[in-house]
Write a protein that binds this DNA or RNA. Structure first.
Length: 444
RNA sequence: GGUCCCGUAGCCAAGUGGCUAAGGCAAUGGACUGCAACUCCGUGAUCAGCGGUUCAAAUCCGCUCGGGACCUCCA
């Protein structure tokens, strides 16, 4: 299995630090608003990564944080005249609902910044003590120039960054690139610290959480490519000072989702919220996974419609297989795989093994769909159809697609048989009535 | 101003040095079918442009054009 490591910019053979276990961390949301479908991309993608690793029989320890201390949260709380906690509780609940809405697992460890304040402050104290951070009037800044290889992840060098014309002007900083570890605040929620009341900067929480939860370098650190600089760069810098390692063995970054020619962003432009999605979650998932995760995706209604149809096609054949086997009491029993079916499974593994090439995995699923349609048409024996059905379930499990069928009741089976009989007897009036009944129940 | 990414058929998209450039949607011809739906079979591109490296390039290098990201909170 190969993973493209953003840290080395290379496709590398994946080898977990501990045999059979993968420790992974994905940067989670700042909870001050509903998430949009661009935010859903890393949710879906890293959920798929997890599913595949589990399919490959790794025990995956999946952690993703909630940033529940932030200026935007404070602003929102003031605006709504509620406490910060009320804001974050509301949007954490909303986030988890959206995660479920896109068929992703919510069964993971979810640390919050407010529960990590002691750890964070403790880290900042150490950074100051070691000379990598400095205190100015109640603020604490990280001294970027002291870290060797700063910019290694995003392939930037300090000189290029400084020459950039958009670097923020802040007289308190020794260097414009230095980032805030602790910020003295007057407005909103604040916490006690050795430097006075304030709140932590954004970049320390992930390091503190990873260190506390895993206690060592982890296997995979994921997030959107927008986080690579400066967030992940800053995480690495702090981790190097604190623990002398780069925090994660493999860094993975997903590309952004664009709409109307530019990226979807909460602060500007057009946004589609996950909670407002009207299409089937499976279709949305297929859409998201149909482009390689490192490439940008452009959202359009038309593109999404293609996958609505695609999912209908896939669910139709799955249902047809299930129905046929059910009617012939062949849902349990021996299954027999044939070379064509086996080839699609191998295609799936090959695709996913190659840096989670979900686009090709979906192609494999489409091939399975076509083959299954051919087999039903060719009256292939049930044991083979059963293995096709089971293979679909493997695909669904890995890609996070949800489709559950229940065996028919005796009555429904009878109706189905009556329909077939009426057709054989060319009693089409009666046949149409049975067909309507079956269609109403969603059986055919 | 600096750094970086991308440009494959009408649309989406895989492929990043070597057989006839995957797959899907749309279109179109055919088959199946009581009707409809579904489904199956067939049909399309030399890879933005130009130049170079190589026995061999969509894939590497250079330039040009076009689109985008980052350098500020952002998945």
């Amino acid at each position: 299995m190969k993973i493209f490591n953003s840290y080395t910019n290379k496709l590398e053979e994946f080898k977990s630090i501990h045999k059979g276990v993968v420790n992974m961390y994905v940067c989670g949301p700042t909870v001050y608003n509903y998430i949009h479908i661009g935010n859903a991309r890393p949710v879906i993608f890293f959920d798929t990564v997890r599913r595949y690793l589990e399919h490959r029989e790794y025990k995956v320890n999946f952690v993703s944080n909630f940033t529940d201390v932030d200026d935007k949260i404070i602003t929102k709380a003031l605006e709504l005249e509620v406490t910060e906690k009320e804001v974050t509780d509301k949007f954490i609940a909303a986030f988890l609902k959206d995660v479920e809405r896109v068929n992703s697992s919510t069964d993971y460890t979810k640390p919050r910044v407010t529960n990590y304040m002691d750890h964070i402050i403790n880290y900042i104290v150490i950074l100051v003590k070691k000379g990598y951070a400095y205190v100015v009037e109640g603020d604490v800044y990280f001294r970027v120039t002291n870290v060797e290889n700063y910019g290694g992840l995003s392939n930037r060098n300090i000189d290029d960054l400084i020459s950039g014309s958009r670097v923020e002007v802040n007289d308190k900083k020794e260097n414009p690139l230095d980032f805030t570890l602790w910020k003295k605040t007057d407005v909103g929620i604040k916490f006690d610290s050795p430097w006075g009341k304030g709140r932590p900067g954004w970049h320390t929480e992930c390091v503190a959480m990873i260190d506390d939860i895993f206690g060592e370098k982890i296997d995979i650190h994921g997030g959107g490519s927008g986080l690579m600089f400066p967030h992940h760069e800053n995480e690495i810098a702090q981790s190097m000072v604190l623990n002398n390692h780069t925090l994660a063995k493999y860094w993975m970054h997903n590309g952004l989702l664009n709409i109307g020619g530019s990226k979807m962003s909460k602060s500007e432009g057009e946004v589609v919220l996950v909670k407002d999605l009207t299409v089937d979650a499976n279709a949305f998932r297929l859409f998201t996974l149909s482009t390689h995760y490192r490439s940008p995706i452009t959202y359009t209604d038309e593109a999404l419609d293609v996958y609505v149809k695609e999912w209908e096609k896939i669910s139709r054949i799955y249902s047809a297989l299930f129905l046929k086997l059910d009617l012939e009491d062949s849902l349990v029993g021996n299954s027999k795989i044939n070379p064509d079916l086996l080839a699609t499974y191998k295609e799936l593994l090959t695709a996913m093994d190659n840096d989670f090439n979900t686009a090709n995995a979906i192609t494999a699923l489409q091939n399975l769909t076509k083959i299954s349609n051919q087999m039903i048409r060719n009256k292939t024996e049930n044991s083979v159809l059963l293995s096709a059905l089971k293979l679909f379930e493997n695909f669904f499990e890995i890609l996070g697609l949800k489709l559950k069928k229940q065996p028919l009741s005796i009555d429904d089976k009878n109706t189905y048989k009556l329909w077939l009989k009426a057709r054989t007897d060319k009693d089409f009036a009666k046949a149409d009535i049975y067909r309507d009944t079956l269609q109403e129940k969603g059986i055919i």
